[in-house]
Amino acid sequence: NQASVVANQLIPISTALTLVMMRSEVVTPVGIPAEDIPRLVSMTVNRAVPLGTTLMPDMVKGYA
């Protein structure tokens, strides 16, 4: 089972991601792979991401 990136807090729309905002967790459905966390830092989300939500590729500008 692959770990995915999960929001560690509410991430408001257009917020630049930082390490403290994300954690890795094995979830269903599978989202962005946890090993991509370093790549996600400073990318922005294009929607509000509630606490505990799995980050999907279409939620992060420039990721997909």
Rank of each mutant, 00 (worst) to 15 (best):
A7W: 03
I32N: 00
S24T: 13
S42I: 03
A34V: 09
G52L: 04
Q9L: 11
S24L: 05
V27A: 06
A48Q: 14
S4H: 01
V26K: 07
R47Q: 12
V49W: 03
P50Q: 11
S14N: 15
G31H: 02
A64T: 15
V45S: 05
G31S: 02
M21L: 05
A48F: 11
A34D: 07
A64D: 11
M21Q: 04
L51H: 14
P29H: 05
Q9W: 07
G31R: 02
I13E: 15
A48R: 14
L10F: 14
T15V: 12
R23A: 06
T28M: 10
M21A: 05
K61V: 15
S14F: 12
L55M: 13
L40D: 00
V6Q: 02
L55D: 01
A7N: 01
M22S: 01
M22K: 00
R39W: 14
A7S: 10
T53R: 10
T18Q: 08
M56L: 09
M22L: 11
G52W: 04
D58T: 10
I37K: 05
P38I: 12
T28K: 07
Y63R: 03
R39V: 11
M21C: 04
I32Q: 01
L51C: 10
K61M: 10
V49H: 01
E35T: 13
S14Q: 14
S42H: 13
V41G: 00
M43N: 04
S4K: 01
M43T: 04
L10W: 13
L40P: 00
L51A: 15
Q2P: 15
V49I: 13
S24E: 09
S42K: 12
E35D: 14
A34E: 08
V49P: 02
T15Y: 08
M59S: 06
T53Q: 13
L55N: 01
V26D: 15
D36G: 07
S42E: 09
P38N: 13
M21F: 03
T28N: 14
N8I: 05
V30D: 10
D58P: 12
V6R: 03
M59A: 11
V20M: 15
G62R: 06
P12G: 06
A3R: 07
Q2E: 15
G31C: 03
R47C: 06
R39Q: 11
R23N: 06
V5A: 12
N1L: 15
T44C: 09
V26G: 05
P38G: 11
V5L: 02
N8W: 04
R23F: 04
Y63L: 05
P12M: 07
V6W: 03
V5M: 02
I32A: 01
E25Q: 11
M56V: 08
T53D: 13
G52A: 06
Q2S: 13
P29K: 05
V49K: 00
I37A: 07
G52M: 05
P50G: 10
Y63Q: 04
E25C: 08
S42A: 13
V20Q: 15
N8L: 05
I11Q: 01
M22T: 00
L19V: 07
A3F: 11
R47A: 08
M56F: 14
D36P: 00
I37P: 00
V49G: 01
N46G: 07
L19M: 11
G31Q: 03
A3P: 13
D58A: 10
S42Y: 13
N8T: 12
R47G: 05
L55Q: 00
V45G: 01
V41H: 01
M56A: 06
N46Y: 11
M56R: 12
V45P: 01
A34L: 03
Y63M: 04
S24H: 13
I13F: 13
K61C: 15
S4Y: 03
T18F: 03
M22E: 00
D36Y: 12
V20D: 11
A64N: 14
Q9V: 12
M43A: 06
D58E: 12
L51T: 14
M43L: 15
T28W: 08
N8C: 06
K61W: 11
T44Y: 14
R39S: 11
L17R: 00
R47Y: 08
M43C: 10
A64F: 06
A48D: 15
D36F: 11
M43K: 09
D58C: 13
T53G: 11
A34T: 12
V30N: 12
R23G: 07
E25F: 06
P33S: 12
T18E: 08
V49Y: 02
P29L: 04
M59H: 09
P33H: 08
T53P: 00
V26P: 11
R23Q: 04
G62L: 06
A64L: 12
V20I: 13
G62D: 12
R39P: 00
R23V: 05
N1I: 15
V45Q: 01
V20L: 12
L40R: 03
I11N: 01
T44F: 13
V45E: 01
V26Q: 12
P12T: 08
L40C: 03
A3C: 09
M59K: 02
L10Q: 14
T53W: 15
N46P: 01
L51V: 13
E25S: 10
D36C: 15
V26E: 15
T54A: 06
M22W: 03
T28C: 15
N8P: 02
M59F: 15
V5Q: 01
S42M: 14
I13P: 12
R47W: 08
S4P: 02
L19A: 08
L10N: 15
K61S: 12
P33W: 09
S42V: 03
V27M: 06
L19T: 07
V20Y: 15
T18G: 04
V26Y: 11
S4L: 02
T53K: 08
A3S: 10
P12N: 09
A3I: 07
I11R: 00
V60G: 02
P50A: 11
P29A: 04
R39H: 08
L40G: 00
P57S: 09
P29W: 04
L40M: 06
L51P: 10
N1Y: 15
Y63E: 03
A7Y: 03
L17I: 08
V27N: 03
V45K: 00
M59Q: 05
V45R: 00
T54E: 02
G62V: 04
L17W: 03
Y63H: 04
I37D: 02
V26W: 09
V60C: 02
S24P: 12
I11K: 01
T28D: 15
V41E: 05
P57H: 07
A48C: 12
L51Q: 15
N46R: 10
S24Y: 06
L51Y: 14
A34C: 07
L17G: 00
V45Y: 00
S4Q: 01
I32C: 04
L17N: 00
V27I: 07
V60A: 02
I11T: 01
V60T: 00
A16M: 12
I11C: 03
L55C: 03
T18S: 09
T54R: 03
A34F: 06
T54G: 02
T44N: 08
